[in-house]
Design a binder for these strands. Structure first.
Lengths: 205, 205
DNA sequence: GTCTATATACTGATAGAC
DNA sequence: GTCTATCAGTATATAGAC
């Protein structure tokens, strides 16, 4: 059950790990750093995860879950352009709202490309890669739909999707949550980020 | 002098370090990895650089130099739109051509935010940050010029520039140089990357 | 379930031979 | 200028007390 004590403990640790991985990156973060951030020692962390790698994968998974949670409830909309607009706005908001987790997602599975992973870890890594692809496909489908219904236009849909998502996801580099930032501030920023991207694929006669 | 034996040795090491940092990231790369990639031992590397951090900074510097080299020779062009188009195309090409170095630039100075740095290292870091800002300003100026001369339009120039550059720079995540890739292939890819971004800020009546 | 203490392994950097 | 050998510091992970 989602609200169990054990789940709560795990989530608390995942959040602390996300913070540390965001600030310092995976390799520079020591398990002791995560523990210190929680005000405990690493004994607690090793009680819930066997290795640092497994903890990272769970933070990554939590980040992906937040990305999907932002776009899954969206309606399809009247045409491809409207659908893509909804997706991009929701994704921009998610990148800002969950900046900590998404910075970890951006470090991605790349960090473990050269690690020796167990079979189980390898499977987890494959699942994470698959979920990233699935996420990108949501945007690709909206773009293709828009090209079919005449509301959108572009030369190379699969490259274009990567560029559009990149424009939003690069915010992990320059954006930092601000003290006293309101919901409205973030909504405005998200809109300003999406505008040039959406305008770039809209069909103009 | 640029072609001296010592300079050549340094460049060779910087290239090997760039390759390793690109593949594994800064922290996961051991000095022994860089040496192995050169077919020597770390004695050679420590003869030219006092620390791994200083080596990283030189790779970063080399990456920034390539970015500027791609856009510095460009003419201003007849208007802001033409100027920005030239900048974006050149930058897209540079991101693909120098993928290895630019992947290191993207890791940026962030990697050393929590390191204890010497005064000299701190200064080098400041210079690198300043050069990144200067680079972004080139694009911002073209955009503002275009808004003034009526060839470009956008809501928030400084956010828009970050989004446009992000769209191109995110290619370090998904692009991998392909075996047998021609100049034309890369030029085409660059054009496909730039198209939606440029279209997004062009003024349509 | 969490802590302390520690084993074990790794890696940045140095010293000194050649 | 490059190599070999090694030190010293650090970090993951474990064992066992509480």
């Amino acid at each position: 059950m989602a609200g169990s004590r054990k789940t709560w403990r795990r989530d608390e640790i995942v959040a602390a790990a996300a913070h540390c991985f965001m600030q310092q990156g995976y390799h520079a973060t020591r398990i002791d750093d995560v523990a210190a951030h929680l005000g405990c020692t690493k004994g607690r962390i090793y009680h819930y995860w066997p290795t640092k790698t497994d903890l990272f994968f769970d933070v990554h998974r939590a980040g992906m879950a937040r990305l999907f949670a932002a776009v899954d409830p969206l309606p399809d909309g009247p045409n491809g352009a409207a659908q893509l607009a909804g997706l991009l706005h929701a994704h921009a908001r998610a990148m800002l709202d969950h900046h900590t987790y998404e910075t970890v997602v951006a470090q991605g599975v790349q960090v473990h490309r050269f690690d020796r992973l167990s079979d189980v870890q390898q499977q987890v890594m494959s699942d994470l890669i698959a979920s990233r692809d699935r996420f990108e496909t949501l945007f690709l489908q909206a773009l293709m739909r828009g090209m079919a219904d005449g509301s959108l236009a572009c030369e190379n849909p699969s490259i274009t999707v990567k560029v559009l998502l990149g424009g939003l996801q690069w915010s992990i580099i320059w954006y930092r949550p601000q003290q006293g930032e309101t919901e409205q501030d973030r909504a405005d920023l998200a809109a300003q980020m999406v505008h040039p991207l959406l305008h770039g694929v809209k069909k103009h006669d």
